[in-house]
Write a protein that binds this DNA or RNA. Structure first.
Lengths: 130, 130
DNA sequence: AATTCATAATATGAATATGTGAATTATTCA
DNA sequence: TGAATAATTCACATATTCATATTATGAATT
Protein backbone atom coordinates (compact mmCIF):
# COMPACT_ATOMS: atom_id res chain seq x y z
CA UNK A 1 0.00 0.00 0.00
CA UNK A 2 1.49 3.32 -1.04
CA UNK A 3 0.79 6.10 1.39
CA UNK A 4 3.46 8.70 0.81
CA UNK A 5 2.59 10.39 -2.46
CA UNK A 6 0.71 13.53 -3.30
CA UNK A 7 -0.92 12.99 -6.66
CA UNK A 8 -1.49 16.16 -8.62
CA UNK A 9 -4.65 15.27 -10.42
CA UNK A 10 -5.59 17.80 -13.07
CA UNK A 11 -8.58 15.71 -14.13
CA UNK A 12 -10.23 16.43 -10.82
CA UNK A 13 -10.84 20.00 -11.95
CA UNK A 14 -11.96 19.74 -15.57
CA UNK A 15 -12.98 23.41 -15.71
CA UNK A 16 -9.40 24.58 -15.47
CA UNK A 17 -7.89 23.60 -18.80
CA UNK A 18 -4.10 23.39 -18.84
CA UNK A 19 -3.59 24.53 -15.27
CA UNK A 20 -2.83 21.89 -12.68
CA UNK A 21 -5.42 21.75 -9.93
CA UNK A 22 -5.21 21.33 -6.21
CA UNK A 23 -3.54 18.17 -5.01
CA UNK A 24 -5.74 15.19 -4.30
CA UNK A 25 -4.51 13.27 -1.31
CA UNK A 26 -4.38 9.55 -0.87
CA UNK A 27 -6.75 8.07 1.71
CA UNK A 28 -3.76 7.50 3.96
CA UNK A 29 -1.74 10.62 3.63
CA UNK A 30 1.73 10.24 5.14
CA UNK A 31 2.82 12.07 8.26
CA UNK A 32 5.48 13.75 6.17
CA UNK A 33 2.97 15.16 3.73
CA UNK A 34 0.69 16.19 6.57
CA UNK A 35 3.55 18.17 8.07
CA UNK A 36 4.30 19.77 4.73
CA UNK A 37 0.66 20.63 4.33
CA UNK A 38 0.50 22.16 7.81
CA UNK A 39 3.60 24.26 7.05
CA UNK A 40 2.10 25.48 3.80
CA UNK A 41 -1.20 26.18 5.51
CA UNK A 42 0.61 28.37 8.00
CA UNK A 43 2.41 30.36 5.30
CA UNK A 44 -0.76 30.72 3.30
CA UNK A 45 -2.87 31.70 6.28
CA UNK A 46 -0.34 34.38 7.27
CA UNK A 47 -0.52 35.80 3.79
CA UNK A 48 -4.32 35.64 3.73
CA UNK A 49 -4.55 37.25 7.17
CA UNK A 50 -2.37 40.07 5.88
CA UNK A 51 -4.73 40.81 3.01
CA UNK A 52 -8.03 40.01 4.73
CA UNK A 53 -8.54 43.43 6.23
CA UNK A 54 -10.86 45.89 4.62
CA UNK A 55 -8.34 48.72 4.69
CA UNK A 56 -5.33 46.69 3.63
CA UNK A 57 -7.33 45.14 0.82
CA UNK A 58 -8.25 48.58 -0.47
CA UNK A 59 -4.66 49.73 -0.17
CA UNK A 60 -3.47 46.78 -2.26
CA UNK A 61 -6.24 47.40 -4.74
CA UNK A 62 -5.23 51.02 -5.20
CA UNK A 63 -1.56 50.10 -5.47
CA UNK A 64 -2.42 47.62 -8.20
CA UNK A 65 -2.83 50.55 -10.56
CA UNK A 66 0.44 52.21 -9.60
CA UNK A 67 2.37 53.56 -6.65
CA UNK A 68 0.74 55.97 -4.23
CA UNK A 69 1.95 58.17 -1.38
CA UNK A 70 0.73 57.66 2.17
CA UNK A 71 -1.24 60.89 1.95
CA UNK A 72 -2.92 59.79 -1.27
CA UNK A 73 -3.92 56.51 0.36
CA UNK A 74 -5.08 58.42 3.42
CA UNK A 75 -7.49 60.36 1.20
CA UNK A 76 -8.52 57.38 -0.92
CA UNK A 77 -9.45 55.41 2.19
CA UNK A 78 -10.76 58.36 4.22
CA UNK A 79 -8.70 57.07 7.11
CA UNK A 80 -6.35 58.65 9.63
CA UNK A 81 -2.70 58.84 8.74
CA UNK A 82 -1.59 56.75 11.72
CA UNK A 83 -4.01 53.98 10.82
CA UNK A 84 -2.92 53.88 7.18
CA UNK A 85 0.70 53.95 8.22
CA UNK A 86 0.16 51.02 10.57
CA UNK A 87 -1.55 48.96 7.89
CA UNK A 88 1.26 49.81 5.51
CA UNK A 89 3.80 48.72 8.06
CA UNK A 90 2.01 45.40 8.39
CA UNK A 91 2.04 44.96 4.62
CA UNK A 92 5.70 45.98 4.57
CA UNK A 93 6.59 43.35 7.16
CA UNK A 94 4.85 40.72 5.06
CA UNK A 95 6.87 41.91 2.09
CA UNK A 96 3.79 42.76 0.09
CA UNK A 97 4.57 46.44 -0.44
CA UNK A 98 7.81 48.38 -0.88
CA UNK A 99 8.39 52.02 0.05
CA UNK A 100 10.35 54.57 -1.95
CA UNK A 101 11.22 57.94 -0.45
CA UNK A 102 11.07 61.04 -2.60
CA UNK A 103 11.79 64.10 -0.51
CA UNK A 104 9.24 64.40 2.22
CA UNK A 105 6.81 61.90 0.81
CA UNK A 106 7.02 58.13 0.73
CA UNK A 107 5.54 56.21 -2.15
CA UNK A 108 4.41 52.61 -1.84
CA UNK A 109 4.13 50.01 -4.55
CA UNK A 110 3.33 46.30 -4.70
CA UNK A 111 6.53 44.29 -4.20
CA UNK A 112 5.47 41.57 -6.62
CA UNK A 113 2.30 40.32 -8.27
CA UNK A 114 1.22 37.89 -5.56
CA UNK A 115 -1.43 40.25 -4.16
CA UNK A 116 -2.59 40.99 -7.70
CA UNK A 117 -3.05 37.30 -8.43
CA UNK A 118 -5.26 36.83 -5.41
CA UNK A 119 -7.14 40.04 -6.03
CA UNK A 120 -7.94 39.03 -9.60
CA UNK A 121 -9.84 36.06 -8.20
CA UNK A 122 -11.36 38.03 -5.33
CA UNK A 123 -12.48 40.65 -7.83
CA UNK A 124 -14.11 37.99 -9.97
CA UNK A 125 -15.92 36.57 -6.95
CA UNK A 126 -17.11 39.78 -5.30
CA UNK A 127 -16.93 42.74 -7.64
CA UNK A 128 -17.52 41.48 -11.16
CA UNK A 129 -21.28 41.93 -10.99
CA UNK A 130 -21.16 45.65 -10.15
CA UNK B 1 -13.43 66.42 -16.30
CA UNK B 2 -14.83 62.92 -16.08
CA UNK B 3 -14.66 61.44 -12.62
CA UNK B 4 -17.31 58.76 -12.41
CA UNK B 5 -16.10 55.84 -14.48
CA UNK B 6 -14.26 52.65 -13.65
CA UNK B 7 -12.25 51.64 -16.67
CA UNK B 8 -11.54 47.94 -16.93
CA UNK B 9 -8.15 48.01 -18.51
CA UNK B 10 -6.96 44.61 -19.65
CA UNK B 11 -3.81 46.10 -21.15
CA UNK B 12 -2.59 46.98 -17.67
CA UNK B 13 -1.94 43.29 -17.00
CA UNK B 14 -0.38 41.96 -20.19
CA UNK B 15 0.58 38.64 -18.59
CA UNK B 16 -3.05 37.57 -18.28
CA UNK B 17 -4.10 36.98 -21.85
CA UNK B 18 -7.86 36.99 -22.45
CA UNK B 19 -8.89 37.53 -18.85
CA UNK B 20 -9.94 40.99 -17.85
CA UNK B 21 -7.74 42.47 -15.15
CA UNK B 22 -8.39 44.48 -12.07
CA UNK B 23 -10.08 47.80 -12.57
CA UNK B 24 -7.92 50.84 -12.99
CA UNK B 25 -9.41 53.86 -11.32
CA UNK B 26 -9.49 57.38 -12.54
CA UNK B 27 -7.39 59.92 -10.62
CA UNK B 28 -10.61 61.33 -9.23
CA UNK B 29 -12.66 58.31 -8.41
CA UNK B 30 -16.29 59.24 -7.65
CA UNK B 31 -17.78 58.95 -4.18
CA UNK B 32 -20.21 56.44 -5.57
CA UNK B 33 -17.47 54.16 -6.81
CA UNK B 34 -15.56 54.58 -3.58
CA UNK B 35 -18.62 53.41 -1.67
CA UNK B 36 -19.04 50.45 -3.98
CA UNK B 37 -15.39 49.61 -3.53
CA UNK B 38 -15.66 49.81 0.25
CA UNK B 39 -18.71 47.51 0.19
CA UNK B 40 -16.91 44.99 -1.98
CA UNK B 41 -13.83 45.23 0.22
CA UNK B 42 -15.93 44.36 3.23
CA UNK B 43 -17.50 41.33 1.56
CA UNK B 44 -14.14 40.18 0.30
CA UNK B 45 -12.40 40.70 3.61
CA UNK B 46 -15.08 38.72 5.44
CA UNK B 47 -14.57 35.88 3.03
CA UNK B 48 -10.79 36.08 3.31
CA UNK B 49 -10.95 36.22 7.10
CA UNK B 50 -13.04 33.07 7.06
CA UNK B 51 -10.44 31.16 5.06
CA UNK B 52 -7.31 32.72 6.53
CA UNK B 53 -7.08 30.38 9.47
CA UNK B 54 -4.65 27.52 9.39
CA UNK B 55 -7.21 24.95 10.49
CA UNK B 56 -10.05 26.21 8.33
CA UNK B 57 -7.74 26.39 5.32
CA UNK B 58 -6.76 22.76 5.82
CA UNK B 59 -10.40 21.76 6.20
CA UNK B 60 -11.27 23.48 2.94
CA UNK B 61 -8.28 21.89 1.28
CA UNK B 62 -9.37 18.42 2.36
CA UNK B 63 -12.94 19.06 1.32
CA UNK B 64 -11.72 20.13 -2.10
CA UNK B 65 -11.17 16.47 -2.89
CA UNK B 66 -14.58 15.35 -1.66
CA UNK B 67 -16.86 15.40 1.35
CA UNK B 68 -15.56 14.30 4.74
CA UNK B 69 -17.12 13.55 8.12
CA UNK B 70 -16.22 15.56 11.18
CA UNK B 71 -14.36 12.59 12.62
CA UNK B 72 -12.34 12.21 9.43
CA UNK B 73 -11.40 15.88 9.56
CA UNK B 74 -10.61 15.54 13.24
CA UNK B 75 -8.06 12.86 12.37
CA UNK B 76 -6.73 14.60 9.28
CA UNK B 77 -6.05 17.74 11.28
CA UNK B 78 -5.01 16.00 14.51
CA UNK B 79 -7.33 18.41 16.29
CA UNK B 80 -9.90 18.09 19.03
CA UNK B 81 -13.47 17.42 18.02
CA UNK B 82 -14.75 20.62 19.59
CA UNK B 83 -12.20 22.70 17.75
CA UNK B 84 -12.97 21.17 14.38
CA UNK B 85 -16.67 21.59 15.03
CA UNK B 86 -16.12 25.25 15.89
CA UNK B 87 -14.25 25.94 12.68
CA UNK B 88 -16.86 24.07 10.69
CA UNK B 89 -19.59 26.15 12.26
CA UNK B 90 -17.78 29.30 11.25
CA UNK B 91 -17.42 28.03 7.69
CA UNK B 92 -21.08 27.01 7.75
CA UNK B 93 -22.13 30.52 8.80
CA UNK B 94 -20.13 32.00 5.95
CA UNK B 95 -21.87 29.58 3.60
CA UNK B 96 -18.61 28.01 2.51
CA UNK B 97 -19.45 24.45 3.55
CA UNK B 98 -22.68 22.48 3.64
CA UNK B 99 -23.49 19.61 6.01
CA UNK B 100 -25.30 16.40 5.13
CA UNK B 101 -26.44 14.08 7.89
CA UNK B 102 -26.20 10.32 7.39
CA UNK B 103 -27.21 8.53 10.57
CA UNK B 104 -24.93 9.59 13.36
CA UNK B 105 -22.29 11.13 11.21
CA UNK B 106 -22.37 14.44 9.43
CA UNK B 107 -20.56 14.91 6.17
CA UNK B 108 -19.33 18.30 4.99
CA UNK B 109 -18.69 19.45 1.47
CA UNK B 110 -17.76 22.74 -0.19
CA UNK B 111 -20.92 24.72 -0.96
CA UNK B 112 -19.51 26.09 -4.21
CA UNK B 113 -16.14 26.51 -5.86
CA UNK B 114 -15.27 29.94 -4.47
CA UNK B 115 -12.85 28.52 -1.88
CA UNK B 116 -11.35 26.28 -4.54
CA UNK B 117 -10.69 29.22 -6.83
CA UNK B 118 -8.80 31.07 -4.13
CA UNK B 119 -6.96 27.97 -3.03
CA UNK B 120 -5.77 27.27 -6.56
CA UNK B 121 -3.95 30.58 -6.50
CA UNK B 122 -2.76 30.19 -2.92
CA UNK B 123 -1.46 26.74 -3.78
CA UNK B 124 0.44 28.15 -6.73
CA UNK B 125 1.95 30.82 -4.52
CA UNK B 126 2.91 28.73 -1.49
CA UNK B 127 2.90 25.04 -2.23
CA UNK B 128 3.90 24.55 -5.85
CA UNK B 129 7.62 24.31 -5.07
CA UNK B 130 7.28 21.37 -2.66
C1' DA C 1 -35.83 4.46 28.36
C1' DA C 2 -31.17 4.46 29.30
C1' DT C 3 -26.76 4.60 27.30
C1' DT C 4 -23.45 5.72 23.97
C1' DC C 5 -21.59 7.81 19.95
C1' DA C 6 -21.10 11.91 16.85
C1' DT C 7 -21.65 16.54 16.62
C1' DA C 8 -23.15 21.22 18.02
C1' DA C 9 -23.69 25.17 21.06
C1' DT C 10 -22.31 28.07 24.68
C1' DA C 11 -19.20 30.25 28.04
C1' DT C 12 -14.81 31.82 29.59
C1' DG C 13 -10.29 33.65 29.49
C1' DA C 14 -6.09 34.52 26.94
C1' DA C 15 -4.10 36.31 22.94
C1' DT C 16 -4.24 39.25 18.99
C1' DA C 17 -5.73 43.06 16.18
C1' DT C 18 -7.34 47.72 15.56
C1' DG C 19 -8.08 52.75 15.89
C1' DT C 20 -6.87 56.95 18.32
C1' DG C 21 -4.07 60.76 19.88
C1' DA C 22 0.47 62.19 21.35
C1' DA C 23 5.29 62.05 20.69
C1' DT C 24 9.10 61.26 17.34
C1' DT C 25 11.90 61.05 13.15
C1' DA C 26 13.16 62.70 8.58
C1' DT C 27 13.09 66.12 5.11
C1' DT C 28 12.52 70.63 3.03
C1' DC C 29 12.65 75.45 2.99
C1' DA C 30 12.80 80.17 4.76
C1' DT D 1 18.74 77.20 13.02
C1' DG D 2 13.82 76.88 13.29
C1' DA D 3 9.32 76.18 11.46
C1' DA D 4 6.47 73.28 8.47
C1' DT D 5 5.28 68.95 6.35
C1' DA D 6 5.15 63.75 5.77
C1' DA D 7 5.31 59.69 7.85
C1' DT D 8 6.23 56.48 11.61
C1' DT D 9 6.02 54.85 16.26
C1' DC D 10 4.17 54.54 20.86
C1' DA D 11 0.82 53.86 24.57
C1' DC D 12 -3.58 53.03 25.56
C1' DA D 13 -8.56 51.38 25.19
C1' DT D 14 -11.53 48.44 22.79
C1' DA D 15 -12.83 44.73 19.91
C1' DT D 16 -12.17 40.41 17.80
C1' DT D 17 -10.43 35.84 17.53
C1' DC D 18 -9.13 31.64 19.44
C1' DA D 19 -8.63 27.43 22.26
C1' DT D 20 -10.57 25.00 25.77
C1' DA D 21 -14.04 23.20 28.79
C1' DT D 22 -18.67 22.22 29.56
C1' DT D 23 -23.20 21.30 28.42
C1' DA D 24 -26.78 20.00 25.05
C1' DT D 25 -28.82 17.47 21.07
C1' DG D 26 -29.93 13.75 17.86
C1' DA D 27 -29.38 9.08 16.26
C1' DA D 28 -28.27 4.38 17.09
C1' DT D 29 -27.98 0.45 20.36
C1' DT D 30 -29.05 -2.25 24.30
Amino acid sequence: METNTISLDAAAFPDKEAKMGLPVFDKNISDDDMDKMADNAMLASNFLKAISHEGRLMILCHLASGEKSVTELENLLSARQAAVSQQLSRLRLEGLVTPRRDGKTIFYRLTDDRPKQIMEVVYDLFCRTD
